[in-house]
């Protein structure tokens, strides 16, 4: 998109987008952030354009709203987790930040998968459970567990492909 048309897009629709987001998020600060990020996405040109500017902007903004929600959720659950750790195990702020980013990425990679598939993969990869334990937990056959894990691996691979 040309510099000129981005200026137009900003001038004509930025305050509208900000209001649109505020009415949904109920928070002026988050609305301003998401509106800002929306224009960053426009600038990087990663989203196919639309002849209707507001539809184009809301499509990007909606996806960012959901990302923001996931991030908040992950932060909240992770903070609760580390609060239960003994004090001398408490990870540094930097580690916390890296972990949250990694969890967010994993969540993204697996989000389109059915619950059983995601669960089987995480139990194998993060908990280190055997296929037998997973099969018993999910009440499915051993061969299903192997299929689930394969399916999740493919999804992660394709996700990374999309990202690069």
């Amino acid at each position: 998109m040309s510099q000129h048309s981005i200026e137009h897009l900003y001038r004509d629709h930025h305050s509208w987008l900000h209001r649109w987001l505020r009415s949904r998020l109920g928070c002026d600060h988050s609305a301003a952030d998401v509106a800002h990020d929306t224009y960053i996405k426009v600038l990087t040109g990663s989203i196919p354009q639309d002849d209707q500017p507001r539809r184009y902007l809301t499509r990007i903004a909606k996806s960012l709203v959901i990302d923001l929600f996931r991030r908040r959720q992950i932060e909240q659950v992770y903070i609760e987790t580390i609060q239960q750790l003994p004090e001398h195990y408490a990870p540094s702020t930097e580690t916390q930040h890296i972990v949250i980013e990694t969890l967010l990425e994993i969540d993204h990679m697996l989000q389109s998968l059915p619950d059983n598939v995601r669960q089987a993969f995480l139990m194998r990869k993060l908990d280190g459970h055997s296929y037998q334990v997973i099969a018993d937990t999910l009440e499915v056959s051993l061969s299903s567990v192997e299929k689930y894990v394969a399916k999740a691996l493919t999804a992660c691979y394709l996700y990374q492909l999309d990202m690069n």
Partner: peptide
């Protein structure tokens, strides 16, 4: 790609954490 999962420190390498988030 699979090595990405190994970078999580032990306290965060826990399926319950992500499952909990998902199910909310």
């Amino acid at each position: 790609m699979a090595e990405r999962f190994d970078t999580l420190p032990e306290h965060a390498s826990n399926s319950a954490l992500l499952t909990q988030i998902h199910q909310q």
